[in-house]
Amino acid sequence: MPTISLTVNGQPVTEEVDAPTLLVKFLREQLKLTGTHVGCDTSQCGACVVHVNGEAVKSCTMLAVQADGAEILTIESLANNGTLHPMQQAFHDKHALQCGFCTPGMVMASIALVRDNPDPSEDDVRQGLEGNLCRCTGYQNIVQAVRAGAKNMRD
């Protein structure tokens, strides 16, 4: 069985994995980091988005062995001693979720988007979240939250 060493949310991790293990399964079932969700499992919905070496990636469409040596950030990395990340706070303030299932992926995708584009227009946000589906909100409040979160991150 392959052994992989990587950094997850700042912590070094060395684990054995089966070669077919998906990154999302490794995070959820081996590391018990269940904040990252499996929605469609077909790389469409974006509920499983995490950061791999700083880039937003669908973790249902990447093998754990491909992440050997990588730095992974999941939704669990964001809050600091109970204080929400500015993007999480903006989702809360703008009521950008109902059931919350898509939210971890939405927030991770939004932070990656804002890092590349610190002041995104509404159109930029809608295009940047093309890979993330929400079945509750109709997206309006999500778009507002991402722009507010971007402002919080700039301030």
């Binding site: 790389s43 974006g46 469409t61 093309e130 890979g131």
Partner: peptide, 8 residues
């Protein structure tokens, strides 16, 4: 695709 797919 979408931004996440384009990253891989």
């Amino acid at each position: 695709g979408d931004p996440h797919v384009r990253n891989r």
